[in-house]
Amino acid sequence: MYGKGLRALTLATLVALTATFALVVFWAPNDADQGFIQKIFYVHVPVAIVTLVAYVVGGIFAFKQLRTDDRKWDVRSYVVIHIALIFNVVGLLTGAIWAKASWGHWWVWDEPTLVSFLIVFLLYATYQPLRFSIEDPERQARYASVFAVIAGAFVPLNFMAVRMASSLVHPRTFATAEGGLPGEMMFVFLVSLVAMSLLFWLLVKYEITQKNVTWQIRALRRRLLGDDAVAPIGRSAAPTIAPEAAKPLGQRPRVSYENSPEARSRGPEEIAT
């Protein structure tokens, strides 16, 4: 069955997120210069870190897809990059708000994290169009994996180049006069990092579960109604074939529903709805 531990993970994420927001709003000290708005830092920086790590992880999964030719890695790589892209947008928006609060402009070219974030976003925004323009699912998985490997390696390289290019070193929150983040801020930051990581993991798990369930339903419908009754999958940017279906014919797991009493008593119409 799919989605094991989903409920526990959901609860843990909710607790962590609630704790984070409570700590950020009520406990973390206000920044001396920037005031309350500076607290968006607790969203922006953890989201940014999770995004960049996720891109690299997506590249590693893609590498495994290329090595093993096992489609489950393509699904994982796709979902991780998909969610990371959403986090990337959140990171850009919160970054812009932070920039406005700290420096009075919606965009600052001297903030290397923000700039490299934009470049990485522009690159990964082409991941879906690339997939969409390849119809054969096998080739789509392989080409998308090649892209993800290249892009995953590009992320740190790009960060380094942008960092070197930003001439001024702004007073960064991590490098205060005392040479580090005050203890309380650091604690809240770490809690937030854990919460964002949990949220990311949860969303990835949800999407993978959703895909697996869709494939399972599709396989069942094909089984019950016949291959012709199920409309073929059109072009899609997402992986469209269940990893099990991609395995050689003889090695497919047997669908046990076929002879079970429920399957026989259930009419095709019921499944079809």
């Binding site: 054969d136 073929p232 469209t240």
Partner: peptide
């Protein structure tokens, strides 16, 4: 021996 090849969901060669 038992060779199959698929394009998407369609089997171009079966067994």
């Amino acid at each position: 021996r038992g060779v199959s090849r698929r394009y998407g969901e369609r089997w171009a060669l079966r067994d």
